[in-house]
């Protein structure tokens, strides 16, 4: 029963990671491509790590709380790197399917 929960979490996490990467290939410009990796892949990794923690716990390896450290770190850093990549793309005036905002607001 608990093994089932852990397997479901791992499978869900892996499919979310895959969907994020498919978004990276499928979407038309850099700004839309950002959405897949930042949100979907990060959530997928969270699910995968929770499943792995659960499994380790069932194996009697003790409560593997340190996986939580990776989850916390990824959820803190994913928006930062997405913001910086978006900013760099705007700075380089990368093409967008929806038209770029005007330049004046740049800091």
């Amino acid at each position: 029963m608990f093994e089932f929960v852990s397997a479901i979490l791992i499978l869900l996490g892996a499919s979310f990671a895959l969907i994020g990467s498919i978004g990276l290939v499928r979407f038309p410009d850099i700004y839309t491509r950002l959405h897949g990796p930042t949100k979907v892949t990060t959530l997928g990794l969270g699910g995968l790590l929770l499943g792995s923690m659960f499994y380790m716990f069932l194996q009697g390896e003790g409560v593997a709380v340190r996986e939580l450290l990776i989850i916390g770190f990824l959820f803190l850093t994913a928006p930062v790197s997405a913001h910086l990549v978006a900013k760099a793309a705007l700075h380089r005036r990368c093409q967008s399917v929806c038209g770029l905002p005007d330049r004046d607001a740049e800091s």
């Binding site: 990671a17 892949t41 792995s52 990824l74």
Partner: peptide, 12 residues
């Protein structure tokens, strides 16, 4: 990020 996921899976 995917490499991290793969390593965690190898652990599991």
């Amino acid at each position: 990020i995917n490499a991290v996921a793969l390593l965690i899976l190898a652990d599991t």
